[in-house]
Amino acid sequence: MRSRSVALRTISYLALFALAIFYLLPIYMMLLTGVKPFNEVDLKTMWHLPTAGLHFDNFAAGFKQLAPNIRNSLGMVIPEALLSSLLGSFNGYLLSKWKFRGSNLIFSLILFGMFIPYQSILIPLVKFMQFLGLYGDIPGLVLVHIIYGIPITTLIFRNYYAGISTEIIEAGRIDGANLFGLYRYVMFPLSAPSFAVVIIWQFTQAWNEFLFAVILTNQSHWPVTVALNNLAGSQLVQWNVLMAATLLAALPTLLVYIFLGRYFLRGLMAGALKG
């Protein structure tokens, strides 16, 4: 019995290690390629460790390619994440604590917006943004991300607020607080964890998003995903620079995941509705 469980354990560890290698392979390759000097980059030796110490030429070259786009992405993602979390918080508060007839129906109708393939609304969206004069630039993209983010942000906040006991609300009302006062003095101070989840979620989503970005912005306002895809398709860029650039493009969300993974995971689970 005992020896069998030891064997089982060893097999489990071996399986986990093998899978961990598979998962880390792309990151390992990007890092490895990134820290080699130009003259050591060769397809034949792409898996060899650098022999002449660490060099960051590839990262520098990759950054030079993507710097304006990283700036565009940051300029889009930061206001987007902050505004959409505020909006979601208020929606979630109203839909969980001030229910009215039909509020659940409204919530489900809003929720459906989370699942639609955006190809099904793309043509009207482009025409409408052109009509508003928001086509081609970052503010328009921010607006679009906020609007299509309403379902998920509302969902996360609504579920979070639903778990806060109604007694607190009742106590606040007896003290004379109205709808705004209850939000300002009771709910908002309790919402920090939820804000963390939503801000991180929206940040990652908008940073990684491609379809809206490629359709709604022109070249000088391209976010980083569009520029990276363009870089990958061009014949002029060395693959080693491309790998370094890819790692740079993935770095912000990767860092968010490494340091704030707990909150990221919660957003992920909320996306599964009943996780």
Binding site: A20, N208, E209, T253, L254, F264
Partner: peptide
């Protein structure tokens, strides 16, 4: 380790795997 790829964009992942 198993969860981190979820934080990377499909674009970045496609570019890297395209090379791998």
């Amino acid at each position: 380790i198993f969860l981190f790829p979820m934080s990377i964009s499909f674009i970045a992942s496609g570019v890297v795997w395209g090379w791998l």
